[in-house]
């Protein structure tokens, strides 16, 4: 399978777009006509052919554009990538995991050649051919985590595991839904989730942490999370809220279908073998409402979900002010027909 990479932007003129294939494989997150939190974990061991779940690290038509956007964010704000000193071994773990996975899953795009510690990595789409010594930081232009995550879509948090908790001790975070690595670095699982409404009372985090602490080597897991974003922005960070927050007020009934995007995060969890840390890749997929409603089931269901979602969640996810307009728009695509269970198009 050859991927045609899009020439597109996630800022300024917002030329980001999804092909028909990208629309059909979009990870629509609602398996029923309503939404509430759950620890919706499943094993990350492949999925339907061509779906975003098939490979360990999905590579799609947005790869090159996303990597360009990441480089721009880092040039303006180097603190989007941080690794505390004890996390270097975990960085090598992540580099190994991504290089091995991508070279096995996409042999036409990536190659990895290993002779003992002497490794050669070829990334064809990005035009990279790098020889280096595994575990020797001086042999790469960046630290191992930064090096490989400049070549991998999605954000990456590396969580150290100790004292029966997880600690946000390293990460590459440039495509986030309004949270900051620089603020959260060094925090534990309960500290960085403190702002989330309702879930604490529901005991969600205690159960989620217990699950995550027990994720073992060879048994990665995944879940979906979602929010809404006006304009196809990857970087909706608190650091740049002054730039993107105001764009939420530019929505009109006329431009909504084009500007309003459903933002879905495919979150995966892998135990890292050498460091015993846990890596938490957060891969962001965007889809404009006008593209989403081209799948009739999704249009009907998104209308019902947004119409009925509790106010606290609409506030936390940042669309409470625009909700009436969004529901109004989506109601055109909801004829009241029953929807089938599950996330897939009919």
């Amino acid at each position: 399978m050859t991927i045609q990479f899009n020439d597109e932007t996630f800022r300024d003129d917002y030329s980001f777009h999804n092909s028909d294939r990208a629309i059909q494989r979009f990870p629509f997150p609602f398996h029923e006509d309503s939404y509430m939190y759950s620890v919706n974990m499943e094993r990350h061991k492949g999925g339907p052919e061509g779906s975003v779940y098939e490979m360990r690290f999905d590579v799609d038509e947005h790869y090159l554009a996303e990597m360009k956007d990441r480089a721009m964010v880092l040039a303006e704000d180097p603190l989007r990538c941080q690794s505390l000193p004890h996390m270097t071994l975990a960085g090598w773990d992540l580099l190994e995991l991504i290089m091995v996975s991508k070279s096995e899953d996409y042999p036409d795009l990536f190659e990895l050649h290993r002779e003992g510690s002497n490794w050669r990595w070829i990334n064809r789409p990005m035009g990279i051919d790098q020889s280096f010594v595994f575990m020797d930081e001086a042999s790469l232009p960046y630290g191992p985590m930064e090096y490989i995550t400049r070549q991998a879509q999605g954000d990456f948090c590396i969580l150290d595991q100790r004292d029966d908790n997880l600690w946000m001790d390293a990460g590459m975070v440039t495509t986030q839904a309004d949270w900051s690595l620089d603020f959260d670095i060094g925090m534990n699982f309960f500290e960085w989730h403190a702002p989330v409404p309702k879930a604490h009372e529901m005991g969600i985090f205690v159960r989620a942490l217990k699950f995550l602490l027990n994720i073992q080597q060879g048994s990665p897991a995944r879940r979906l999370n979602w929010t809404l974003t006006v304009n196809p922005l990857l970087d909706t960070s608190p650091e740049n809220y002054h730039k993107w927050g105001v764009q939420k007020t530019t929505l009109t009934p006329e431009n909504l279908g084009r500007k309003q995007h459903l933002r879905v995060e495919l979150q995966t969890f892998f135990r890292l073998p050498r460091s015993n840390a846990l890596v938490f890749p957060i891969r962001c997929y965007l889809i404009a409402f006008e593209d989403l409603v081209s799948v009739p089931k999704w249009g009907r269901r998104l209308h019902r979900v947004l119409r009925d979602i509790p106010d606290e969640l609409a506030t936390y996810k940042g669309f409470i002010d625009n909700r009436p307009m969004l529901v109004d728009y989506l109601s055109q695509y909801d004829d009241g027909a029953e929807t089938s269970p599950g996330v897939w198009p009919d």
């Binding site: 000193p85 004890h86 080597q217 060879g218 048994s219 460091s275 015993n276």
Partner: peptide, 12 residues
């Protein structure tokens, strides 16, 4: 089984 670590080093 795959390796499981319940006695890992604190790398700090």
């Amino acid at each position: 089984s795959y390796p499981v670590n319940l006695f890992s080093l604190d790398l700090r």
